[in-house]
């Protein structure tokens, strides 16, 4: 493959809210190499979540191009996007998004049903992954019987189940206490070290320690770290 792993070019995402147009992203250009740990920082409303969902093919851009691993996402139809997501993406959400009626193991195995993986193989793989995230003894527990940190680890196992090249995490530590958050960050760092490309959207500054690549977003635009610092400090001193 030529060019970077992820190439985002002229990306815009506008919403209609009431009568006004909200420009969540407005002309964003980003290149991300593979095997990097990218942290996207930005205050709420900066468009960082929009960026993540567009990159994951869960939303459609208003304008611009999105290339991941040599494939162009913005021109794919729904079906192609679904297949792409199951093949190349693993998602981790702030609110875990586990199916409450399913056990930890079933939640981890869930995506493999859509990929048509045989049942035996699904069970094997989900137990392996739960072991990997340190929850082998919790595989039959329902999400309601697990702590927040444990739930997020189940979600990480689920994100890994189809062996994706790209892990997208949206505020993965946002609902967790400090120590659980730290262990989740460590886990994401381990994934990066194992050779995966990880992109985390967060406003948790501790995440910066692990970053090999940083993107700062303000009002739908990519800005430099210096601009970002001064803008956020200004905002703090204003308040």
């Amino acid at each position: 493959m030529t060019g970077p792993f992820i190439r985002i070019f002229g990306l815009a995402r506008h919403y209609q809210m009431g009568g006004t147009t909200v420009r969540a992203l407005d002309g964003v250009n980003v290149d991300i190499e593979s095997h990097t740990f990218t942290v996207v920082m930005g205050p709420s409303g900066s468009g960082k979540s929009s960026l993540l969902y567009l990159l994951g093919g869960l939303d459609r851009p208003t304008a611009g191009e999105i290339w991941v691993n040599g494939e162009r996402l913005d021109t794919m139809d729904e079906n192609q996007l679904a297949v792409f997501r199951r093949r190349a993406m693993g998602f981790i959400f702030q609110s875990f998004n586990l199916v409450q009626s399913m056990s930890a193991a079933e939640n981890v195995a869930f995506p493999m049903q859509f990929a048509g993986v045989p049942a035996m193989r699904r069970t094997e793989r989900s137990h392996d992954l739960l072991k990997q995230v340190g929850l082998a003894d919790r595989s039959h527990h329902k999400p309601s019987e697990l702590s927040g940190g444990q739930q997020q680890r189940v979600a990480i196992a689920r994100a890994l189940v189809n062996d994706p090249a790209l892990i997208l995490a949206d505020e993965p530590t946002g609902n967790l206490d400090t120590s659980s958050g730290a262990s989740i960050m460590q886990m994401l760092a381990d994934l990066h070290r194992a050779g995966r490309t990880v992109l985390v959207v967060t406003h948790d500054a501790r995440m910066m320690r692990f970053a090999t690549h940083k993107i700062f977003l303000l009002d739908g635009h990519v800005v430099s770290e210096a601009e970002y610092q001064s803008a956020t400090l200004d905002a703090m001193s204003d308040s």
Binding site: R85, F91, R158
Partner: peptide, 16 residues
């Protein structure tokens, strides 16, 4: 609704 969103995120097609 969120479960549907999740299914789609993990690769369920509209047809699924």
């Amino acid at each position: 609704t969120r479960e549907i969103g999740l299914m789609k995120a993990v690769g369920a097609t509209n047809r699924d």
